[in-house]
Nucleic acid binder design. Sequence first.
DNA 1: CGGTGCCTCAAACGTATGTTTCAAACAGAC
DNA 2: GTCTGTTTGAAACATACGTTTGAGGCACCG
Lengths: 224, 224
Amino acid sequence: MAQSDTVDRILDAAEELFADRGFSETSLRMITSKAKVNLAAVNYHFGSKNALIHAVFARFLTPFSATLENAFNDLEERCDGHPPTLNQTLWALTESAVRMPQRNENGISIFMRLLGLAYTQSQGHLRKFLEQEYSQPFSRFMRLLKEATPQLSAVDRYWRIQFMLGATAFTMSSSDALRDILQNKLGVETTVQEIAARLVPFLAAGMQAQDTMLMPSLSEAPVA
Amino acid sequence: MAQSDTVDRILDAAEELFADRGFSETSLRMITSKAKVNLAAVNYHFGSKNALIHAVFARFLTPFSATLENAFNDLEERCDGHPPTLNQTLWALTESAVRMPQRNENGISIFMRLLGLAYTQSQGHLRKFLEQEYSQPFSRFMRLLKEATPQLSAVDRYWRIQFMLGATAFTMSSSDALRDILQNKLGVETTVQEIAARLVPFLAAGMQAQDTMLMPSLSEAPVA
DNA sequence: CGGTGCCTCAAACGTATGTTTCAAACAGAC
DNA sequence: GTCTGTTTGAAACATACGTTTGAGGCACCG
């Protein structure tokens, strides 16, 4: 076989199992037996379980962040001078994710699940790894968001970005299960692309909502 | 001391540790040593670690779902006949959560984190438990959402509800960390109530976004 | 053919986990 | 005080985990 088929088989199996069950809940023995590989191979090729987790992310994120940089370059070039709109920025990100070359038909959805888990599970080492390896495209995205929403205060913008991240990471992190439910309840098939097409308008509308609207005062309502 | 102080001390410690670190990452030994209680007490009083997790949720969710039912009753009564608006429905939920009697100052935020984790971590037993114990208020909330957004197709509404859940669960599930970051970066203090006050308009706007807007065709754009 | 580097394998190591055990301490009733 | 049922305590149990070990295989080069 190719020069290290084992490495890829481990990465494939790990990616899928991590996405299904989380990091702590996935043991090396599950991974190696799914990959049909010896247990010791993980520590031989990657050094540790944490390093394997990093490798799973790097395999996707490194080409993705390159694609994303290009998309942002194109976008800013097309807009020469004035800042891209919120919709343009969100679509640049979405398209970059959706059109990444994929190893299999569920590539994006699996990876979205992993990104959601990375944010949610406490895994300190992972957050540190992602921050120091991929801070550049992330900061650039944040800058574009800021320029696209000059009407928001810094605090409002901060929280709305968190809400966007949440809606995205959460939806994608359980999108297989959600798709199944949808298919059972409504008999509709849904692709990741279609979910993204529904998500982006939702995010854009939320991001641009009028300032804190009619909010019933918490203090004067009767206690239950 | 009271008739089983041990039980409450275990629940308090477990609640906090689970929220901080997740379920699998929190061992019974951490819980019992934080609660200053013997290790065997957990299995004596609760039967198993999973049952302890259920008890942590039940302690909050049972009174909360009663409060929520009352809030929905009040709301529908006030609206006699016509369905409550989206904003009213979201606020009824938010207020019920925010004004629940709390054991300590971080009560809600801790519990929101737990709910987020419940959805995110795979923990099949937990999802099953929550579904069969608290399906009634959940279904009612879904019905209210449906009546408040008659303009949406069933599929659109389904996905937008997922986006709302995601933004909420995700934000709340890391809200302490986010609050810390915000304080460091912008020097602003934020309470759960204030986060909710920012979240609801975001959700309402996203929920009522105009139908799928200008979406650059995925097929004609240049490949990166 | 002999040797050198890379890789695989089965087995074991040490540690941490959830759970069980059983004796001791305790509280309340008679 | 003595008995009874409930709760606590220290210790052990079995199991699963991540990691390490060292012998063996296999390909390549001289």
